[in-house]
Structure formats: C-alpha cells, structure tokens
Computed example of a mutant assay.
Amino acid sequence: MSTSAAPSRVKVWLMAARPQTLPAAVAPVAVGTGLAVHEGMFTPLPALAALLGAVLIQIGTNFANDYYDAVQGADTPDREGFTRVTAGGLVEPASVKRAMWLTFAAAILIGTSLVAVGGVPILVIGLLSVASGIAYTGGPYPLGYHGLGDLFVFVFFGVIAVTGTFYVQAAATLASGFPLGVPSGTVPMAALLASLPVAGLSTAILVVNNVRDREEDRRTGKRTLAVRFGYTASRIEYLALLALAYVVPALLLWRGFDLVVLLPLLSLPLAARVSQTVLTETGGDALNPALERTGKLLALYSALFTAGLALG
C-alpha cells in the first residue's frame, strides 16, 4: 500500500501565500505606473516600493483569509477550492496568524518610504489597506461574510491601488515636502478611469470564487453576494465587471489618448472563453480552472493596458 508524501514546508507556505493571486497585486501597480509614464511622471523608487507593498498586502490578506476562515468554520472538508493550510492541518493556526502580522508589518515598513513622498494621503491609504485586509475575513464584522467582499476588492485592489500608485509618482514629481492633502494634479480623472478595469477584473476573480463556493458558504453562514442573490445575479455581475474593463479604453481614446490605448481589446477572446464557463458551471472541477484563467485575464489585460498607456 502506497502513501502520498506530505508536502514540504516551503510548498505549504507557498500554498498559504497563494502566488496565483499575485496578479491582483501587480496589475494595479503596473497600470498606475503606465499612466505615470504617459503623463511624464514615472519615478522608479516609489513605483518599486508600491509594487513590493502591494504584493505584501496581498500575501498578508491571503494568510488572514486562510487563518480566519478556518477558525470561524467557513472552510470545511467539502470545500472545492485550493487547499487551505490552516483548515487542512498543515500549519498550526498560531503560525499562520503570526505570518499574517509579520507580512503586514513588512508592508508597513516599506510603506514608510511612500509616506515620506506622498504624505498623509498615503499614510491613510496604507493603514486602511492593512486594516481592510484583516477585516475581510476577521474582526467583529468580517466584510466577506456580509456581502461586502466585492466592494472591498473593487475599491482597494482596483481604484485605490491604481490611483495610489500614480499618486506617489506624481507627488514625487509635483509636490515638495510632506503633503498633508492631495496636491493638485496628482489624482487626475485619467487615473480614476484607468483604475476601473483593474477593479472590475480583480472583483471578477472573487465572483468566480464565490460562485464556486456558494453552497458551502450558504451552509456555513458566509453571506457572500452569490449566497444572497444566487447564481444568475453573480453571472450578471461577472459580465458587467468584464464589460466595464473593455469600455474604459474607448473612454480614454475619446478623452484624447492615442489609439494604442485600445491594446487591451486583444484579450477579448480569453474573456469570452472564460465567460462561457462561468455562465454555465457551478462545480469546482470547472470553476477552479476558470478562476485561474480569470487571473490570467487580469494579468494579460493589465500588461496590454500598461503598454497602451505608456506607449501612447
């Protein structure tokens, strides 16, 4: 009789960090930096610090989700998603919680360099991002358990992440000293528009996750939007988020950007293929690959969008 070997410690921690979710951290920084290049405000060190901070916040949030979903009973043996190390007994809960705090502490440490450039607005954004990463599944009112997860991802991994990345580079270029407010020209309308595709596609990843987990979440009391409103509403939400992503480049073209800003439209075939799965399937066998492909769609779209903004 053969037995499967236990995963190595390195592999276990990689499972907890969930590197497949990192496009959601890298994409907004790339797009915000692409716009900074377009506006002649690219500043390498703030851009790099923003990237490292975003990756650490994403990993810290993944550790928080792994820990809090396990201790609150939301992860059960029937879960169809990727393995969670706390619920699976691969790592002691205290160790995962410690890793969460250490990762968020590292993000805050890196963020101090951004605060020196961006002032009070970046301080507020950084602290709110860390607090929300914990509050997504932890604390007295977990956002993800009350149907607020979609809004959290849209705002923090989309709008704030893109505009914040652009802001620190613009502040380094336009501002002097330690800004107490938002200096003029550091958050233009173009930055807000450019944030919407990333916000939409990042949230679409969560929608697939919640459609896949709907039945388990319903049994464990996790009231996601998929649980509250059902499969049809979630599929409409998914399509609406993708539509938002593909409308924005046309709006930027209309606002005077170069034709190359339409480069993200090259990712439409992938969007169409993954949408067919999301619109027809509910099980993990089909939706786990769809979840990964939506992450790849975010990565591809963001790479094309970044190039279109920078080259334009």
Rank of each mutant, 00 (worst) to 15 (best):
V10D: 02
W13R: 14
M15R: 01
M15Y: 00
Q20L: 09
A27Y: 08
P28L: 07
A30I: 06
V31E: 14
L45M: 14
P46T: 06
A50M: 15
G53K: 08
G53C: 08
I59N: 09
F63T: 14
Y67E: 08
Y68I: 01
Q72G: 11
D78Q: 14
T83Q: 10
T83I: 00
V85I: 07
V85S: 07
L90D: 08
V91M: 02
E92R: 15
A94E: 15
V96Q: 14
R98D: 13
R98N: 14
M100V: 07
W101G: 11
T103V: 10
A105G: 14
A105I: 06
A106L: 14
A106I: 05
I108S: 10
L109C: 05
G126V: 02
A131I: 03
A135K: 10
Y136H: 01
P140G: 13
Y141W: 12
G144H: 12
G147S: 10
G149P: 03
D150P: 01
D150V: 05
D150T: 05
F157G: 12
I160R: 00
V162N: 13
T165H: 07
A170P: 04
A171V: 08
A172Y: 05
L180N: 03
S184R: 10
G185H: 08
L192H: 04
S195P: 04
L196F: 04
V198D: 11
L201E: 10
T203Y: 05
L206F: 10
V211T: 07
V211F: 01
R212E: 00
D213V: 00
D213P: 00
E216A: 06
R218Y: 00
T220K: 01
G221E: 09
G221L: 03
K222C: 06
L225I: 12
R228E: 08
I236R: 13
E237A: 14
L242E: 12
V248Q: 08
A250E: 07
G256D: 08
L259R: 12
L262M: 11
L262Y: 07
L263V: 06
L268M: 11
S275P: 01
S275C: 03
L279G: 03
T280V: 09
D285N: 06
A286W: 02
L287E: 01
P289H: 02
A290H: 03
K296A: 14
L298K: 09
F305Q: 11
F305C: 04
G308V: 09
L309T: 10
